[in-house]
């Protein structure tokens, strides 16, 4: 979390009954964000985009805890599968508007990654795929220092 980016890991904020399968528990999450924050998630919204609070479609608890929400003041969305029947979207969050820039070369490589993934798995068992990336400036928030830069992606499926 930074003043301009927040990630919501639902597993840290749910209370649920013991002894039941999380996949059998239906929940409906809602989220009140600071003004001017936009969100991205694999969760589908039940209300209008930008609604206050944001209300999500009911899901199983299992799906909810596997579908974090990223939100922030600066968001850039990219279409990684133009024209495809199954949308594959990239959402980039940063602490400033200039940190959001995705170069054409980067976009080509991201789309190549999607192509390679489809070639590898030969199937797409999801309705849409949302990749979430954040570039917080404060290095204490960067996970996985061994990976190249801080460019770890978080892929989410429903």
């Amino acid at each position: 979390m930074t003043p301009d980016i927040v990630k919501i890991p639902w597993q840290n904020m749910v209370i649920y009954p013991a002894g039941w399968y999380a996949r059998d528990i239906t929940v409906q999450a809602s989220l009140r964000l600071p003004a001017n924050f936009q969100l991205a998630s694999a969760l589908e919204l039940a209300g209008p985009d930008g609604g206050r609070p944001a209300v999500f479609m009911p899901t199983s608890l299992e799906t909810l805890v596997d579908s974090p929400v990223y939100a922030g003041r600066y968001l850039q969305r990219c279409d990684l599968a133009p024209g495809a029947s199954i949308p594959i979207r990239l959402s980039v969050f940063a602490d400033s508007a200039e940190d959001l820039a995705v170069s054409p070369e980067e976009l080509v490589r991201m789309r190549a990654m999607v192509d390679e993934t489809e070639r590898l798995f030969e199937s797409s068992h999801y309705k849409h795929y949302d990749l979430l990336i954040s570039f917080p400036r404060m290095s204490t928030f960067i996970r996985g220092m061994a990976s190249p830069g801080n460019r770890r992606t978080c892929g989410l499926r429903i």
């Binding site: 490589r109 991201m110 190549a112 990654m113 192509d115 390679e116 993934t117 590898l120 190249p148």
Partner: peptide, 12 residues
């Protein structure tokens, strides 16, 4: 596979 795909796509 994340690493293998990143290399195949030219990310790494």
């Amino acid at each position: 596979w994340a690493l293998a795909l990143a290399a195949r796509a030219g990310q790494l």
